[in-house]
Nucleic acid binder design. Structure first.
Lengths: 130, 130
DNA sequence: AGGCTATAGTTGAGTACGCAACCAATATAG
DNA sequence: CTATATTGGTTGCGTACTCAACTATAGCCT
């Protein structure tokens, strides 16, 4: 699933999630640290991740006027497009995976319980709203 | 948790789980492929994992009389001891983690639901019975 | 018997991280 | 206003994997 579906679009799970979070963020941009938090990665992990997305043209850097330490990661148009394509097959895949094993009621229970875990930023409606 | 507690014993999560599975297996030994399946690793992943455990003296190799392709991974006495030490703090940590967030009833629901996922080899009683 | 195909395992190359060390900019203290 | 601590970010190095290629054995099938 992570493997096949997402790799078909040339995106790893974290690539995908990074784009997703950016697409949800105001103006499609986020400080790298904050992104790290959401992705459950370290700062260095995010640096490397964004390196890839950047050379792929899906994300750009922007600097912050009020604090010159921070550089934003901002979603490009290409990134937004790519995310939408990938989310098509990805959310379908995930949905199929769970619906094959659980009833609607069980899915709600799972979502409620798992949603209380540390890094769970409400993935209930993870289609691509960007 | 994986990080602190298990690394305190010099074991990664997969090291730990490998020892656990071996301790539960008949005669404390298992074919490397089967172990790979349980650990959700590839064959090469297991080779490398066992390399480590082997040089640490926690696991040994044994060959199979009826099929000369297979080599077993067998738990040594040192391995069994180490597992028991580690499981002390590890299961306590895991238990604390979940009990801090869920009620008894919720834990049963979670166990029931998550137990139906692909690699879930009934971890309900994962104390070290070895 | 000989020739496929599948299975168990290892190895080399590449990837995705974490950790520790570092630099630069900012905040806090004195 | 200097001195120190904190925060955002990058880089070097090590680790835990995967994938693809390879060897050796085993089970067919004719």
């Amino acid at each position: 699933m992570s493997a096949e579906l997402v790799a078909e679009h040339g995106l790893t799970i974290n690539d995908y999630e990074a784009l997703l979070h950016l697409s949800r963020a105001e103006e499609g941009r986020m400080r790298r640290v904050d992104l790290a938090g959401l992705l459950l990665l370290t700062a260095s992990g995010v640096t490397r991740l964004l390196d890839g997305l950047e050379t792929a043209g899906l994300v750009e850097r922007a600097s912050c006027a009020s604090d010159r330490r921070v550089t934003y990661a901002v979603l490009t148009e290409a990134g937004r497009t790519r995310l939408q394509q990938a989310s098509l097959s990805h959310v379908a895949g995930v949905r199929a995976f769970f619906e094959a094993r659980y009833s609607g009621e069980e899915l709600e229970q799972l979502a409620a319980l798992l949603g209380r875990l540390p890094g769970a930023a409400d993935a209930t409606h993870e289609d691509c709203t960007g």
